[in-house]
Design a protein around this nucleic acid. Structure first.
Lengths: 242, 242
DNA sequence: CTCCAGCTATGTCGTAGATTAATGCGGATA
DNA sequence: TATCCGCATTAATCTACGACATAGCTGGAG
């Protein structure tokens, strides 16, 4: 294995820190290999039941849903330490597609093996529920942003969430974190048009709220940005279970 | 008990039909009583960790999130057969609030007792994950509707989902199902203004696409409505586990 | 019976954001 | 070198939707 499990980025993720650490030990046993993919590679697609599950080791991607006519809703960004394919294990099919947007390295698991373990071991299985509930929590927050907030608020919300997460994951240096997406991706994540996203970004850059170019997101005053984005304080996601 | 568990509406729900039926038997043991509430009664609130969990026996309600300034995002409608409080069992706190909008009768469970069971029994615990994943699936769909669809499409989407679900639950008669909400509730669910929702509803009513008044939703051609709402065919939600 | 509160309904107007289109620019290809 | 391609940028125009205002309906409180 090219990465020692001890250094797996998953261990830095707030999501997994809240899980029983034994679960990670168990998961290791079901690792069947690693996978390296290029930007644009589809990892899973909506409606399919992929036999492989992944954790993201490095690089980034997108989860999204498509409408027949091509409109796209980006559900969330995929960062190192994320778990991919929960739904193809629990439901029969993926409810969204996943695609790499940079070079990615992934840790590969066999779906049925891994889920068999989760299904039959009480303590482990509960961590799966935690994962799903965490996703659910995020989606509710995103839905509220898209449904109720202005363009500026939405962008501030998204940027500060990304910034905080990647900082916590140790991905950034100083006041910058990597954010290797196109403006179109952000637009599709927030339910805005590309042009309007661009203009709003420009305005926010002028006002020194943040800057994002060349895949690098720089935020000087994260708290101001969070306030602008009406970000709720996150008392839950990183806290251990009951 | 005023309702026999055998007749619990939960048994009609597609969500629970996909669960291991043994789980329902187990849940019965943890029922601690029933609760009747009036419209407007808050059942759980965002950030709290309610000690009681519920299943809805009759009546309807709302899940929602509030922004500080009062804007409200309705996350989903609550119908008979729904399970309330999953998050306060899995995460430490509810990530949204729940409120009754009609008279409701609820089946009450003790949170820690019930979750203890789920945590320690492998097969049962997996059904919890199924529940959370189902919610996640729905939220992704809602997010896509709010983020990408027009007002008419959103309303068609919401109405056809409600209609199909309540039909399947046996709540309707003929081409009508109960939908006892205010237009404001629908507006907040879809990220639209009340006024625009009202006008769009009027236009759709004129075009005979559907009618909704006095808490009764009537749809003559559900398939046409679904097509208008770009509803994806639901191959997943009602299917049994692997 | 009136009063009031909550809801639906509709018209007018304003605007945030969508659409279209044109320009520029670095990177790849050859 | 030239050509192409994907993406960011910017400006001009349009429109779906929001904001505001008014009126009508219904049911409950006094």
């Amino acid at each position: 294995m090219s990465i020692k499990c001890v250094n797996c980025p998953i261990r830095k993720s707030p999501i997994f820190q809240a899980m029983d650490s034994e679960t990670l030990e168990y998961m290791q046993r079901f690792k069947v290999g690693e996978l390296v993919v290029e930007p644009g590679t589809p990892l899973m697609s909506e409606g399919s039941n992929a036999p492989q599950l992944y954790t993201a080791l490095s690089g980034m991607g997108l989860r999204y849903k498509l409408l027949e006519d091509g409109r796209r809703q980006v559900i969330s960004f995929v960062f190192p330490g994320d778990f991919l394919g929960l739904q193809s294990g629990v439901m029969r099919e993926m409810t969204h597609s996943v695609e790499a947007t940079t070079n990615m390295r992934l840790c590969v698991f066999d779906r049925s093996e891994l889920f068999n373990m989760f299904r039959h071991m009480p303590g482990r299985g509960f961590d799966l529920t935690w994962l799903a509930a965490t996703q659910e929590r995020f989606l509710g927050e995103a839905m509220t942003s898209i449904g109720q907030k202005s363009a500026t608020e939405r962008i501030a919300w998204a940027m500060s969430r990304v910034f905080r997460h990647l900082q916590a994951m140790g991905e950034g240096k100083g006041k910058s974190v990597p954010m290797p997406y196109r403006q179109q991706d952000l637009a599709d994540a927030l339910g805005l048009s590309l042009v309007h996203t661009n203009k709003t970004l420009a305005r926010m850059r002028e006002k020194q709220l943040m800057s994002w170019s060349d895949g690098l997101l720089t935020v000087s005053d994260i708290e101001a940005l969070e306030e602008l984005g009406l970000v709720e304080d996150d008392g839950v996601a990183s806290r251990p279970l009951m």
